[in-house]
Design a protein around this nucleic acid. Structure first.
Length: 281
DNA sequence: AGAAGGCCCTGCGTGC
DNA sequence: TGCACGCAGGGCCTTC
């Protein structure tokens, strides 16, 4: 599920039900996530008030009034499920590893079948110093992410541009879907060596990255196999994919072009890439 | 030191 | 219908 637009959407949904709320209970059903839940998580949450949320790359940070922030990563299959206490079924929710309850009677559960997700505690004043955040590159939607910055990050790299954009040190928050989509919109082949994208091609690539992310956030993210949003609603950006998971379908940018064989699927560093070899060079 | 591959884990779709 | 296999939105760690 979750790349930047999905995490942003989930976070906004959580903020709606948790901002300003006091947490009256928390419980851990299964501690062996990617990393174990941190010591003291339940203690620090119980009785704390939620001050607000922030997103960094694909991480959510929930600030508490005691000076702690809860750092949450959804991994591949994680989602947050909010429900009213009176609606809670008696049987446990499958793969709900962590649950908190507010004074207002809302339950929020962290559901993650594959358990690639993680939760940690960090002092709010030192959030960005956390080891998982410290090495991250620029936020793609910030003004600080511009063609010059990306160009500098790509200079000298001989890895394919696809792999470079997945590297969270280059730019933070892109994943497999949005890299393919942004490269398609820029007319750049995912196979092109990263250093050769530095310079003029970044003038197209950077706006394409920002546009695809903004459009997806506006659509509530992409829902593939799982629901995305905290209220159980789904996102709709998957209906606007131009290349992702569209192998063999016609390329929108080559109408009536006999040399266009449609969207191709290749594997790069073990992950699928989708592109049109005719106009992505 | 940069880059490629393995691995963590469960569920689902496909093809035999 | 059942089973084996491949694949899935991420990212850390090891190896070369």
């Amino acid at each position: 599920m979750p790349e930047l637009p999905e995490v942003e959407t989930v976070m906004r949904g959580l903020a709606k039900v948790l901002d300003g709320q006091r947490i009256v209970a928390a419980s851990i059903a299964r501690p062996d996530m990617r990393w174990p839940f941190p010591d003291g998580l339940v203690t620090r949450l119980t009785g704390a008030r939620v001050l607000g949320f922030r997103r960094r790359a694909k991480y959510m940070l929930m600030r508490l009034d005691g000076g702690d922030s809860v750092l949450i990563h959804l991994g591949m299959s994680g989602r947050m499920v909010a429900r009213r206490a009176q609606d809670r079924p008696n049987e446990p929710v499958a793969h709900e590893h962590f649950t908190l309850e507010t004074e207002g009677g809302t339950h929020v559960g962290f559901v993650d079948p594959r358990r690639f997700g993680s939760v940690d505690l960090v002092a709010t004043a030192r959030e960005d110093g956390h080891k998982l955040l410290a090495g991250l590159g620029p936020e793609p939607l910030d003004d600080a992410f511009n063609p010059q910055v990306l160009s500098d990050a790509l200079a000298g790299k001989h890895t394919p541009i696809k792999a470079a954009l997945l590297d969270q040190k280059v730019v933070a928050g892109l994943g497999n879907i949005y890299v393919s989509e942004a490269l398609y919109r820029s007319g750049i082949s995912p196979r092109r060596e990263a250093y050769s994208v530095a310079g003029a091609r970044c003038l197209k690539l950077v706006p394409a990255i920002k546009a695809v992310l903004e459009e997806s956030i506006a659509a509530g993210g992409s829902s593939l196999r799982d629901y995305v949003q905290a209220d159980g609603g789904i996102g709709f950006f998957q209906e606007r994919f131009r290349v992702y998971d569209r192998e063999g379908l016609p390329c929108d940018d080559c109408p009536g072009e006999p040399k266009c064989k449609g969207i191709q699927r290749i594997v790069q560093s073990g992950r699928a890439s989708f592109y049109c070899p005719r106009h992505q060079r």
